[in-house]
Design a protein around this nucleic acid. Sequence first.
DNA 1: CAGCATCCTGTGCGATACTG
DNA 2: CAGTATCGCACAGGATGCTG
Lengths: 119, 119
Amino acid sequence: MKDQSNAICLCPLDGIIDTIGKKWGLLIINEIGNHGKLRYNELMSELAGISPSTLASMLKDFEREKLIEKEVFKQIPPRVEYSLSTRGRELREAIIPLIKWATKKGNYTVHCSCTLVKK
Amino acid sequence: MKDQSNAICLCPLDGIIDTIGKKWGLLIINEIGNHGKLRYNELMSELAGISPSTLASMLKDFEREKLIEKEVFKQIPPRVEYSLSTRGRELREAIIPLIKWATKKGNYTVHCSCTLVKK
DNA sequence: CAGCATCCTGTGCGATACTG
DNA sequence: CAGTATCGCACAGGATGCTG
């Protein structure tokens, strides 16, 4: 039980925790995923409480990590749409087990607009 | 595609990110999981670079969250063993998809003692 | 051995004002 | 509209020394 056989290595997560472990990390990814496409100010509204500088910085991170894609429409006023990359979509699905796990904490009661199955 | 049907709610994760999103969060959980039981100083050695205060604070967090269990042997010098609770073990398994996802980033090459399957 | 107390630094992130 | 620039605070977490 203590040998290599079922040992888990977290090395692959190196660097990713810095991105998705942040306060707004998964929230942003998920919000974009839920909507398909979202503009900067739409994100500002959906993520109540985030500051423009924080959002901008997170979006840049995600872009660099190739988790999201940015489409710029050259027009006045400017229009920018963010969507998940394939990799971003896969990430969003990879965290579902985590959500299921978290939901199992005690008898969960719904406290948001989503419908949660009670254990 | 934009309706409720496949929308994901992260509310259940509320509070958990604060715990496992920290620099050493998953590392500690996983290290204990890999070994079954670990003492304080053993953790200090395995997690090269962590400071005693940080480790102590994380262990308290995890204890409060009921992710780990602490067994104290009343003797001099003291002996304390940490192990995962059932919930902690489940968490460890819930993050496996995340690790798999992270591993898929490019052609992954092994850079730690673990054996990683190449994509 | 298993921590706790103290100090210190980096930075995540909010608030606000400004710009192309 | 989609950001950037600047300021400021709270806190994570490292280093070190001490204690039961």
